[in-house]
Design a protein around this nucleic acid. Structure first.
Lengths: 64, 64
DNA sequence: TGTCATTAGGGTAATTTGGGAC
DNA sequence: ACTGTCCAAATTACCCTAATGA
């Protein structure tokens, strides 16, 4: 279910977090790599929880 | 305390810092010598703090 | 109302990935 | 054992103008 108070992030904020260009974040959304919500005007917004989960990624591979 | 935004570096930037080929940085990441974060597109990003620490040298091994 | 930063959209160059080999 | 370079493909960065957001 959805959380009414889920914080949304702008493409620029997500881009800063990943150290990529805002356009790249837009491309991720267009490719379905990340879900996005659109404002009535067409701008994208991203769920902070999902972005953070993506940032965590997979734990570093252990050096055996 | 949360680290909402850790500054990240690209493979090319890390390579320049160490004066090695980007491919070598990739090998370090693949072998677990340095931790990395992946963009949804698969590109690697490195924590600046970790890179700086590595650049300073490891105290426990510098005098072996 | 108007201003100004950000975003969308399209196109092209640069970077990064992955593997294998020397 | 470690690094640099070859390849092809994918991802990302930067250019522009117009629209949206605050």
């Amino acid at each position: 279910m959805e959380r009414a108070s889920e914080r949304l992030l702008t493409p620029g904020e997500v881009a800063s977090l990943f150290r990529v260009d805002p356009k790249t974040v837009t491309r991720w959304a267009a490719s379905g790599r990340i879900s996005s919500i659109r404002t009535p005007g067409g701008h994208r917004r991203f769920r902070e929880s999902e972005v953070r989960a993506l940032l965590l990624g997979e734990p570093s591979e252990s050096a055996t």
